[in-house]
Design a protein around this nucleic acid. Sequence first.
DNA 1: ACCTGAACACCGTTCAAGT
DNA 2: ACCTGAACACCGTTCAAGT
Lengths: 224, 224
Amino acid sequence: MTARPDTPRSRRERPAKPALSRAAIVAAAVAVLRAEGLQKVTMRRLAQELDTGPASLYVYVRNTAELHAAVLDELLGTIGPVPAEGSWRERLVQVLTAYTAMLFQHPSLARSALTAWPSGPHYLNLIETLLALLDEGGVPPAQAAWGVDLLLQQATATAAEHSAEDTTQDDWDALTDALRNVSDRTHPHIAARSGELLSGAGEARLSWRFQALINGIERTAVPN
Amino acid sequence: MTARPDTPRSRRERPAKPALSRAAIVAAAVAVLRAEGLQKVTMRRLAQELDTGPASLYVYVRNTAELHAAVLDELLGTIGPVPAEGSWRERLVQVLTAYTAMLFQHPSLARSALTAWPSGPHYLNLIETLLALLDEGGVPPAQAAWGVDLLLQQATATAAEHSAEDTTQDDWDALTDALRNVSDRTHPHIAARSGELLSGAGEARLSWRFQALINGIERTAVPN
DNA sequence: ACCTGAACACCGTTCAAGT
DNA sequence: ACCTGAACACCGTTCAAGT
């Protein structure tokens, strides 16, 4: 047994400069995301974290969008298995809710997922799971295929909507004001139900959305 | 009649420096959007266009997100009136399609609309229109109210998905490859219908989505 | 009240040069 | 092949000072 002569245990406090790799970059990205949010997951910040220059990252990652997609796939690994109990509908809603809940914790990631599609292993597993549940429910294959797309997009978009950054509260206030103060001469339907337009705790509304989507997917045939 | 002594017709070619106002800023933003896309609609660029410094714009506009919302409301004014012919369903789909088509021309605007909600007059008109059509179709008011939300979000998210910038094509390729090369031992449902998952011209798929949504909204009661 | 120059604190990405 | 320093071409927003 010869002692390894290189990497002399401690030059400073960092445990020798870690080798650069795609996995190391994604891991650093997840750590920064958890600690400080997606807006800090930048090439420059990650480079700093990995003790190198931003240009070095481009050997492993095409651009920022691809990096975000990789981060999302990573987090998809945390949402756990399909519940064993309940009807296919209940289990389907539970899986979708788990996916949405994860994204709610990182709404800006949801935002970027809307345009930069992940294609990693965890995303594929999720698609497989949803297809299996719709199949179990007797939804015709073609409808199920298009339905999975619709369900995932809906869940992602709902989470993305909450990506506040700063002004979302103001936007919401502006919209609720506008809806409440509308004239019932020009906008009778809004005036008649501004209550309902604005009502609904997030959870009830989200679950209604999933139900409506599933009902629609079940009943709507694909052309040809 | 005395000649106005100020603003001496032409000092250079600009027709005297135009007065700053919210309307002028939004108009400049729309022009830049049309000519060069949303990524160029920045505070700095607009300031340059209006012959001032970026700081001056903050007198009229809270931030970039609010500016984008104002631009969207402006464009909403261009989508035209509800068609007079057809069943309420057909007209509903036509309005939604017109909204989506407009956003398809500016997908990055759709992306920003997902988080920065407009609350301008054109947006209110759109909500009123959709409510009226659902009402005509006999959809119960509470369902209609939540349904409008769902329909608009769906349309916006679909357009946002196409906000390419650069890598969307690569993402798509990566995902199609991943779906096609999946093992039918680990992912039998995907393997069995990778064709259907990927199939469908945009238009057929979009119209299926609207139909599925409307069917679901019609049939899904709001809790309580 | 409205407007501004200048500054603060950042970005993504490319490229030529090194190892 | 992998890694890098340095540069290019930008951002949003704030603030103290002016009119």
